[in-house]
């Protein structure tokens, strides 16, 4: 069989490279019995279309940012609560705690989760140093979903919607003063062209997940299904390692290009931890009993 696999990001992104390797592994393990053609950078389906196209069987397999589904169920937003899990160890523990529920919610839509890999942690990009949240008070802060909007509000900033392609112009012309994103995106958008300070908050590690249409998956012969599952398990391990290496690598690149890289001050860390506390509570109000169990399991894993 030949499977088309839409993915949202370009070929130079480590998530895509990991997927290419995954596709090669599957082809090798099945002796070419299952070829996966990766359509990167939204070239077959754009990011907003990918989840539904896999669910509808237009593509058997695809990759999507988990928190893109946050409006469908709060559980998909658990990896995007700022300062709940802000290191690879914590992110791992949170993923172990939340994975069964994520799988269950996806199964209800006829989707099977294969694996998930985090982006490097989300950090703050500004033109001025940030010593405390007071430095962000009244600043236009880029928000692209409900969680980032709430985060901006809690920091006293003004949440501002800026489309991805518009970010350089928006910084250059003062429509936005700060954004929070990974070092990867910072490097790929050459953030040093329009910002000068990187505050390494690593606020949360959002994950991309690779999902497959359950019905089409089960239509495969047993050995091919096993090959996919094996390759997926390897891709998850490999992806987490790539992500950690990427974090150091890209922060170094930011430095090389003249950005001031700094650790959050004690004041800022305290303020941010408090915001994290608030946002976790707010998420729990939304996620109810299920959410409570995930957070308890997470704390147990730590």
């Amino acid at each position: 069989a030949n499977w088309d696999m839409p993915t949202p990001y370009g070929d130079s992104v480590f998530h895509t490279q990991n997927i290419q390797q995954f596709a090669e592994d599957v082809a090798a393990a099945t002796d070419g019995g299952l070829e996966i053609t990766v359509h990167s950078a939204g070239s077959l389906y754009a990011h907003p279309e990918i989840k539904d196209s896999v669910r509808r069987g237009l593509a058997p397999i695809g990759e999507v940012l988990m928190s893109r589904l946050a409006n469908e169920d709060p559980i998909f937003a658990v990896d995007s609560i700022p300062f709940l899990a802000s290191s690879y160890d914590e992110a791992r523990a949170l993923w172990d705690a939340s994975r069964p529920l994520v799988e269950e919610k996806l199964a209800a839509q006829g989707l099977t989760l294969l694996y998930a890999v985090p982006w490097p942690g989300q950090s703050i990009y500004t033109q001025e140093p940030v010593e405390s949240t007071e430095d962000l008070e009244g600043a236009a802060f880029r928000a692209y979903n409900a969680a980032t909007e709430r985060l901006a509000q809690l920091m006293g900033a003004v949440p501002t919607q800026i489309e991805t392609g518009d970010i350089p112009t928006a910084f250059a012309t003062g429509r936005v003063d700060a954004m929070i994103t990974s070092p990867s995106t910072g490097v790929s958008s050459q953030a040093w062209d329009f910002t000068s300070h990187y505050t390494d908050t690593q606020a949360w590690l959002p994950k991309n997940m690779v999902i497959v249409n359950t019905q089409m998956f089960e239509g495969l012969p047993e050995d091919q299904r096993q090959a996919i599952m094996d390759a997926a398990a390897e891709a998850e391990t490999r992806g987490w390692e790539m992500s950690a290496a990427e974090t150091e690598d890209k922060i170094a690149t930011l430095k090389e290009n003249g950005m001031t890289v700094s650790q959050p001050s004690d004041t800022l860390s305290e303020q941010l931890a408090e915001i994290g506390e608030t946002m976790t509570q707010e998420w729990l109000e939304n996620a109810g009993e299920e959410g409570q169990q995930v957070i308890e399991a997470y704390e147990g894993n730590m």
Binding site: G10, P168, Q190, F194
Partner: peptide, 15 residues
């Protein structure tokens, strides 16, 4: 913008 996003090139530089 489309090219910059797909190839990880700086949109500011492309412009």
């Amino acid at each position: 913008i489309v090219y910059g996003a797909a190839t990880e090139q700086s949109i500011a530089r492309l412009f």
